[in-house]
Design a protein around this nucleic acid. Structure first.
Lengths: 214, 214
DNA sequence: GTCTATATAGTGATAGAC
DNA sequence: GTCTATCACTATATAGAC
């Protein structure tokens, strides 16, 4: 029986599956699904190509397992927004967590970016169901803060888009960021963090912004 | 002699080259370089595959011609920032032009996004030379406005990154934007425009922001 | 200038030895 | 469970007829 369709039982199976997923993340995130080859993944994993296909039924199966495994983690920062918290702490905290994630997990960011950019043919319906539901829930929290005059009034869902766009940019377009900042430039994240704090921080000052709340 | 390496002379050659580039933009932007096939491009263009290769030497050549043709256009909004202009008009104008470009040229945006995301193997050095020079020039203008207290002090290059990230998001991640907003939602751009005006507009009010200018 | 036919290489997946 | 060998298919590019 193949090891792909069932939970791994032995230690070596768990380790090999993990090794393969690690290698697949490396290759898929850099090349996209079509661009990646099983040969590359096998080489990075240090396993033979048929051995890969012993653990996973197909290239598609490896990719699907990756997406499934990582989507939850990827949305954790958004889930962590506390409706009972302070708007400033929650919004800036969310931005900080999301930026940290871009820094620590750039391959995951690029994996999702590749998938979405090419029309999300495999992540597909999860966006319209799970992701949409979570965003709606948190957008409602933001909207309440706006109603209470504690946050500038903008379209709350688009505000979440803004956090995504700004933070993921540093992972997804890292090559461009480094090229523009120059070879001698160090870590871009501290300056990015400062810029984002100023940008979003100003949404929390004099929140009414033309049509003040209570 | 091949028509690929020289300027097209006849009307039909110009038209066919343009037809091919159009089709290639359609396919490359949706699939990335590796994901795209000459068959797909040929079908969209309404030409045979060998005929494509009569006009362009290779798949690489088509892709390179596309990138070269479009990079200049893509940077026009940034070039248009007027150092002698009013900071509010110039910054918000830049944001507006860039967002319009995402709306009118989403395929171009996704073409570049694919290329950068995968490490810019072909656009490569242009980023470190041409793009970097242009960004440095305009960042200096922003920095001067900050020195004059007319714009909140943030890292000027990262401020340009912010404009890119926020505006291109609506083209590059269009599938996700539509999925999250829901099928009944209309055009997302008006709300995006409003959000961006608020976000960047607040960088222009009380510009000092903690460490005030003159 | 444009087509049909095909050479050549790479890629996903399988068979079967060990 | 893991390897070697290989099949079947796809894709880029070219040759040569018209």
């Amino acid at each position: 029986m193949s090891a792909g369709s069932t939970r791994p039982r032995t230690r070596i199976q768990r380790e090999n599956r993990q090794t393969i997923l690690d290698a697949a993340l490396e290759v898929f995130s850099a090349q996209g699904f079509r661009g990646a080859t099983l040969d590359q993944i096998a080489e990075v994993a240090g396993l033979s190509k048929p051995n890969l296909l012993y653990y996973f039924a197909s290239k598609e199966a490896i990719y699907a397992a990756l997406l499934e495994t990582l989507l939850d983690t990827w949305l954790d920062p958004l889930r962590a927004i506390d409706p009972a918290g302070d708007p400033r702490a929650e919004l800036l905290g969310y931005v900080r967590r999301k930026l940290e994630m871009s820094r620590e997990m750039p391959r995951e960011s690029r994996l999702f970016a590749n998938e979405i950019l090419q029309g999300a043919p495999r992540l597909g319906s999860l966006l319209a169901t799970d992701l949409r539901a979570l965003v709606e829930e948190k957008a409602a929290v933001l909207a309440r803060w706006m109603d209470e005059g504690r946050l500038a009034r903008v379209h709350p869902v688009h505000l979440i888009f803004a956090v995504w766009a700004l933070t993921q940019h540093y992972a997804d377009f890292e090559v461009q960021v480094r090229a523009v900042l120059g070879p001698e430039a160090g870590d871009p994240f501290p300056a990015a963090q400062q810029m984002l704090e100023t940008l979003f921080g100003r949404l929390l000052e004099g929140a009414g912004g033309g049509q003040s709340g209570p």
